[in-house]
Amino acid sequence: MQIFVNGETRQVPPDCNVAQLLAEMRLADKRCALEVNREIVPRSAYATWVLQNTDQVEIIHAVGGG
């Protein structure tokens, strides 16, 4: 199925959960936060949150700013 991650399309297997997505993207050990369809997914729910076709995923982190 197809989802959108930070505005880019991405193919993921059916029943892919957030933890698997982050592992696949090599972001599992990075300090980041994530929302799916504008809803924040708590870290504790990564392994149980199953992604759906056309989900909009945003993965954010801290960058330099004033």
């Binding site: 930070n6 090599r26 300090r31 980041c32 993965i59 330099g64 700013g65």
Partner: peptide, 21 residues
């Protein structure tokens, strides 16, 4: 210290060091 919140680099730049490191 102030930081901004932006999209995480994905793809080629995924391994870049993080500000909070």
């Amino acid at each position: 210290v102030t930081v901004a919140i932006r999209r995480t680099n994905i793809g080629q730049n995924a391994g870049e060091p993080n500000l909070l490191d």
